[in-house]
């Protein structure tokens, strides 16, 4: 395994630990939805996908990242602080009285582009950004990270159709395909299959990857800045909700639970937590 992949894996493990400690300190936050997309978030922020400047968060040429599944705000905040968008010390104020870091992403936080948390909003905004970039002849890339259950929202497919129609090849949607929503498994009550065929039918190029594999994620995104295709790109990333802590994996109850007592000990042990 290359050093680069090992570094990214270390970063993903750091992120899971950070999310766990932030949510435990707060007694609030979405752990399992954040663990599900940990590798995706690390890959785009540290794997050479997004071009950002923490010193200049509103840099006009920056790539735009929209966390459409805004419930993973805790993970994005940890990354933004780590990248230097705001002080790392602020992370432990997450959802506390007086903090600006809440349970869903707000656009006033340095590094955050859009106010999300209500599902189905991020892709339409991302489509508008991508169209605006094209009209203004800007070369930035817009990336939206969607949840699996979020794809039940009709507005996702309105935007998918729009992006396909306008051939927004500067738009990348990544679906965190963990097969779950807040309370259940999507395939058991409202199936999204065939997911890839849906996106293709709406005019997108589709790539399916193991969403916890850095080699696969990086390979799938290697040409996003200079696409040879003429369509928007959707990466369906197969993931496991709660990935990294055995008792949280694929257990719906952990969508919005915080571990206590022995649970916390086990989670920390499995994530190889080292007290600072």
């Amino acid at each position: 395994m290359s050093d680069r992949v090992l570094d990214l894996e270390r970063k993903a493990n750091w992120l899971r630990n950070e999310v766990l400690e932030m949510t435990v300190a707060a007694g609030a936050g979405h752990i399992a939805p954040s663990f599900s997309c940990a590798e995706i978030l690390v890959a785009i922020h540290y794997g050479g996908v997004l071009r950002l400047d923490p010193e200049n968060p509103k840099w006009e040429e920056r790539d735009r990242f929209i966390l459409s599944k805004g419930q993973s705000a805790v993970a994005l905040y940890a990354i933004l602080a780590d990248l230097g968008f705001f002080p790392v010390e602020e992370l432990l104020t997450f959802t506390q009285k007086g903090s600006r870091l809440g349970g869903h992403t707000e656009d006033t936080i340095p590094g955050v582009e859009a106010f999300t948390g209500s599902l189905g909003h991020g892709l339409p905004i991302a489509a508008g950004l991508a169209l605006g970039a094209r009209l203004r002849e800007k070369r930035f890339l817009t990336v939206a990270l969607l949840g699996d259950g979020e794809c039940h929202e009709g507005s996702i497919w309105e935007a998918a159709m729009f992006a396909g129609q306008h051939r927004l090849n500067n738009l990348l949607a990544i679906v965190d395909r963990n097969g779950q929503s807040a309370t259940d498994f999507t395939g058991d009550y409202l199936t999204l299959e065939p997911m890839e065929d849906k996106w293709r039918a709406f005019g997108w190029e589709v790539r399916t990857v193991d969403g916890h594999s850095f080699p696969e994620l990086i390979e799938a995104m290697k040409d996003v800045h200079d696409p040879s295709y003429e369509k928007p790109l959707c990466i369906v990333a197969d993931t496991i909700k709660g990935k990294g802590v055995s008792f949280m994996e694929r257990e719906p109850i952990w969508h919005y639970r915080i571990p206590v007592d022995e649970e916390l000990d086990i989670a920390r042990r499995e994530l190889k937590w080292e007290k600072k």
């Binding site: 339409p124 605006g132 309105e158």
Partner: peptide, 18 residues
């Protein structure tokens, strides 16, 4: 945008952001 008002608002927001 077609008869798709939810997307219309999101696209408007995205365009305004550019």
């Amino acid at each position: 945008v077609g008869i798709a008002e939810q997307n219309m608002v999101g696209v408007a927001a995205g365009l305004a952001m550019t």
